[in-house]
Design a protein around this nucleic acid. Structure first.
Lengths: 103, 103
DNA sequence: TCTTTGTTTCGTAATTAGACGAAATACTAA
DNA sequence: TTAGTATTTCGTCTAATTACGAAACAAAGA
């Protein structure tokens, strides 16, 4: 396999990945919800009640955010408690910060 | 037509729209490029030289960023000089800011 | 008038995203 | 063991995104 010329910087790639994850109103809503209730347990069902989408669709959005590293789920059957992934959140915050407030 | 219950706030909708626009490495690259060269004129061709994609594809990405309100193009045939749309950029910055640094 | 030039638009193909309902999962409680 | 519960996974469909090359455009210069 060839060593491919790199076109985008790591920052640009990551920036695009985090942005894409936040590129849907349901997923922005989820992040808002989790951040607002960072002290409590947040279950999928709590969010489902406020959203006009099928539970399976919500589950899909949750796993996209999880794959992007923005949230994590702690299994506690039959519930799953969701919360912010602090490392991912901090990285996204920093990336966005240097992107918008560049020197 | 019914008055539909609003599910997402304006902020959430806008947040998702701006994020989606930045959800591709080529578009992040374009923003970086325009911000870095804010003083100069930036033509499509200048960016095309650094990107491994067809010019028509680049043009598509440019018009997505334009549709999202993040950039604008001043026609100066046969060139088109692109630059940041300051109003959109400021709004995106503010949205991201309150999203990440909420109180 | 005919070329040339930089860029966009068009037509099209391949891939990914977003949505749903039905079925599966994994644990609790009866 | 059986039933119940919250959630996910699966299969499927439709729509949107990403990409390309060819053709169109609009002005400048020969």
């Amino acid at each position: 396999m060839n060593v491919q010329e790199k076109v985008f910087t790591d920052q640009q790639e990551k920036m695009a990945r985090y942005s894409k994850a936040l590129g849907h109103p349901v997923r922005v809503f989820i992040m808002d919800f989790l951040l607002k209730n960072a002290d409590k347990c947040c279950y999928s069902g709590d969010m489902a009640e406020e959203l006009p989408i099928a539970r399976s669709t919500l589950s899909q959005h949750l796993s996209e955010l999880k794959a992007a590293g923005l949230i994590q789920g702690e299994i506690n059957p039959p519930y799953i408690k969701y919360c912010i992934n602090k490392a991912g959140w901090a990285e996204a915050k920093e990336l966005l910060d240097t992107f918008f407030y560049r020197k």
